[in-house]
Simulated scan of single mutants.
Amino acid sequence: MSSLRPGSVCDTTPLQRFESQSSSGEEPSSPTAASIIAAAAAAAAASSATPTSTSNPHNLNNNNNVKLDLQLPTFVGSSGPGLGSGLVTGPGSIVPGKRPLRGPKKILGRILLDLCMLSCVGLPMLGFSLWGEPFKRGFFCNDTSLKHPYKHSTIRSWMLYLMCGALPVVLIILVEFFRGQDKRLHGTYKSQKTRTGSGYHLCHLELPYWLLECYRKIGIFIFGLGVEQLTANIAKYAIGRLRPHFFTLCQPVLWDGSNCSHPMNAGRYIEEFTCGAADMNAKRIKDMSLSFPSGHASFAFYAMLYTAIYLQRRMHWPRLRMVQHFVQFLLLTFAWYTALTRISDYKHHCSDVLAGAGIGITYAIIVTSTMW
C-alpha cells in the first residue's frame, strides 16, 4: 500500500487555489457556493485516504484539521457580520461606522433643486405683480361699504416682513443650534435624528446636523409662505373686489361724464368708469381692486402659526416651557392684531380678513403636519 503525501489531494482543490492566491498576493476570485462544496468534499476524501500510521500520529492530526478561512469582500456603506461599513471623513478616507459623506456637488445639486421648486411658486407671483390685471368689478353708487376714508396701514409692509419673515428664521436658527448642543436630546429620537454630522462636507469639513435641520425647516417655511401668497394672489386677481376706501381714493367718473352725486345714478350698477382723483396712478388703481382676500392676514397667520407649531414640536426643554408658551402667545397675538388692523384701517372688508386668515392657517397646518 503506497503512502500519500499530506496535501497531495488538496493541492488541486478550489480551496487550496484560493488560499495560495491569497498568500502569494494575487487577487483571489470571490468564492462561490460550488467551490466551497468542492473544497469540503476534497478535504473529506483526503482525510479518508490518509493511512492511520501509529509511527507518526502528527500526520493524521495535521490532515484532519482543515481550515476554511473565507475572506469575504468589504462593502463600503453596509453593515452587519462580514460586511464592512465606512464613513468618508475626507477625500479618500474611510472610518467604520457611518455612511460616506456627500461633497459640494451634492450640496449644490440639492440647493438648485430647491430653488427650482421655489421658482415654480415665485415666478407666477412675479408675473401677477408685473403684468397681472385684476377682474374689473363694478359698483353701486349707494354702496356704503365702499365709502370709508383712506388711512395709512397700522402694520406697514416692512413691519410685516420683519415680524413674519425675519423673526421666524431667527427663532428656528436659535432653537436648532441649542438642540445640537444639548446632549440630553441625543438618543431620545430615531438614529437619523441624533447624529452630530449632517453627511455633507464642504472644504473638507463636515457640516453639523443642526445646520442641515435649519436649512430644512427654513426651506419648508419659505416654500409654504410662497404657496400661501400665490393662493391669495390668484383669488385677488380672479375676484377683483374693491377696497372699502374706493370712493374716497378713486372719485369715480362715469362714461357719460356724470358721477355718483347725480340722482339718476343712485340705483345703477356702474362698470364703465375712470378715477377722477388727481393723484391716482396705475399702481393705485390696480391695488384698489385687490381687497379679497387679505394678504396681510394670510401672511401673518401662516408665519405666526407655523412658528408656534415649530416651537411646540422642537423646543423640548421643560424649564423653558412657560417661556415657550409665552412666545407662542405673542406670535399668535401679533397675527390676530394684524388682521384686526386691516379692518380698522379700512383696507379690507371683514370677509376678506376671514378668508385670508383661513388660507394662512390651512397652509401652516399642512406644511407642519409632518414636522417632528
Results as ranks from 00 to 15, higher is better:
residue 105 K to V: 13
residue 153 S to Q: 13
residue 163 M to W: 08
residue 58 H to R: 12
residue 338 T to L: 03
residue 370 T to N: 12
residue 150 Y to K: 07
residue 104 P to F: 10
residue 275 C to G: 09
residue 196 T to Y: 04
residue 43 A to Q: 14
residue 248 T to W: 02
residue 231 T to K: 02
residue 324 Q to K: 15
residue 89 T to W: 00
residue 196 T to K: 08
residue 313 R to F: 07
residue 347 K to A: 15
residue 249 L to D: 03
residue 346 Y to V: 02
residue 288 M to D: 00
residue 272 E to A: 12
residue 24 S to C: 05
residue 135 F to R: 14
residue 142 N to L: 04
residue 33 A to E: 05
residue 233 N to Q: 14
residue 18 F to H: 15
residue 355 A to M: 15
residue 235 A to T: 01
residue 134 P to V: 03
residue 253 V to K: 14
residue 178 F to L: 11
residue 187 G to C: 13
residue 232 A to M: 10
residue 102 R to G: 03
residue 39 A to K: 05
residue 351 S to D: 11
residue 138 G to Y: 07
residue 309 I to K: 08
residue 159 M to E: 13
residue 82 G to R: 08
residue 336 W to E: 10
residue 37 I to G: 00
residue 85 S to T: 10
residue 109 G to H: 02
residue 233 N to H: 06
residue 310 Y to M: 00
residue 301 F to P: 01
residue 301 F to L: 15
residue 258 S to K: 13
residue 59 N to R: 13
residue 45 A to C: 03
residue 5 R to A: 11
residue 243 R to T: 13
residue 101 L to P: 01
residue 172 I to H: 08
residue 68 L to K: 01
residue 276 G to Y: 04
residue 128 F to I: 03
residue 360 G to C: 05
residue 83 L to S: 12
residue 254 L to Q: 04
residue 343 I to T: 12
residue 266 A to C: 06
residue 268 R to S: 13
residue 39 A to V: 06
residue 23 S to M: 08
residue 175 V to G: 01
residue 107 I to L: 14
residue 252 P to V: 00
residue 239 I to D: 00
residue 183 K to Y: 04
residue 199 G to R: 02
residue 371 M to S: 00
residue 122 G to Q: 09
residue 260 C to W: 05
residue 170 V to S: 07
residue 8 S to A: 13
residue 215 Y to L: 10
residue 296 H to I: 02
residue 185 L to H: 09
residue 1 M to F: 10
residue 312 Q to S: 11
residue 160 L to C: 12
residue 291 S to R: 03
residue 296 H to E: 06
residue 244 P to G: 09
residue 349 H to L: 05
residue 91 P to H: 03
residue 7 G to P: 04
residue 145 S to A: 05
residue 175 V to D: 04
residue 131 W to R: 04
residue 70 L to K: 00
residue 127 G to C: 05
residue 328 Q to H: 00
residue 185 L to P: 04
residue 338 T to V: 15
residue 281 N to R: 12
residue 58 H to M: 13
residue 286 K to M: 03
residue 15 L to R: 08
residue 64 N to C: 04
residue 282 A to L: 14
residue 79 S to F: 06
residue 140 F to P: 04
residue 58 H to Y: 10
residue 212 L to Q: 14
residue 305 L to I: 04
